[in-house]
Design a protein around this nucleic acid. Structure first.
Lengths: 142, 142
DNA sequence: ATTTTCATGTTTATCGGTGAATACAAACAC
DNA sequence: GTGTTTGTATTCACCGATAAACATGAAAAT
């Protein structure tokens, strides 16, 4: 279970140190993929397998299914921690997320997300206030 | 499992270097064929056999089945990596995909796809908007 | 037979990824 | 408070993958 918000830095080569508390849960090797809202998703192996299972069930004959599988897989890569607990964020994902140095790594329950500092802060300002979100949650039955 | 997006260049002779990470999974010899959405498909032997199996099961009486089998097989060829890890993309496929120099090689799970840079970038703009991606993910419960 | 063309091989240079070492900072124990 | 431990940041150096250029050789054309 991934929780918490951590401000880390991405180095000149595009590597970022994964918060210590996430490392065990991520395991030996895990996956990084293009996320939503200009973020990067990081999935543990188990979670990844479940997603792939769902993707396999999509009909290949459907244009939309092909498109999604394609985009999702193309934007993903397998990764593992180096000796210092870092991963390399692929360049295309760095560009997508607008990451160059100041970065946030946040735990979102089933996955980890990586955000450029500016994007994350902007998102928190722009998006619905926490109170408003709480109201919406009620609609979702939480 | 093929994943990731790699920007490579096709040389003047129509050769392109296959990403190192794909080479083992592709094996000694593999197949290149006309793909969908103006892309080129590359299949490992095993995957190729399965496709051929499916094609064989198509009723010979079906006009569309015959046509597809014909086009698919006619446009395909067996290939292998040269000493530098490159393959030669047959000219007809290069023309079909609009490839001349800047090229993307992407992993799509069960196969590799080769795209002309412009076509791939256009496809990503057109086909799968951000909202659609989000919706698809929601349907999948991600 | 000579030239031309095309496919294939080889070499070199560059750049990005990878690893290791060190420095810094925060948390904790005493 | 001081010293120790642990986690993160930074830097440097190396290695390997890719790109580009060049070389070789075979087949086709004249």
């Amino acid at each position: 279970m991934f929780i918490g918000e951590y401000k880390h830095t991405t180095d000149a080569k595009g590597r970022i140190s994964i918060p210590k508390v996430f490392r065990d849960d991520l395991g030996e090797s895990f996956y990084i993929a293009k996320g939503l809202d200009q973020s990067i998703f990081v999935f543990a192996q188990k979670e990844w397998d479940e997603i792939q299972e769902k993707l396999r069930s999509l009909p290949l004959t459907s244009k939309k299914g092909r498109a999604f599988t394609r985009t999702f897989n193309a934007g993903a890569s397998k990764c593992s921690l180096d000796a210092s607990g870092r991963i390399l964020i692929p360049q295309n994902l760095r560009e997508y997320a607008g990451i160059d140095k100041d970065t946030y790594v946040i735990g979102v329950g089933t996955r980890v997300e990586i955000w450029a500092k500016d994007v994350w802060e902007q998102y928190n300002e722009d998006e619905l206030s926490y109170d408003e979100l709480a109201d919406s949650m009620e609609e979702l039955g939480i």
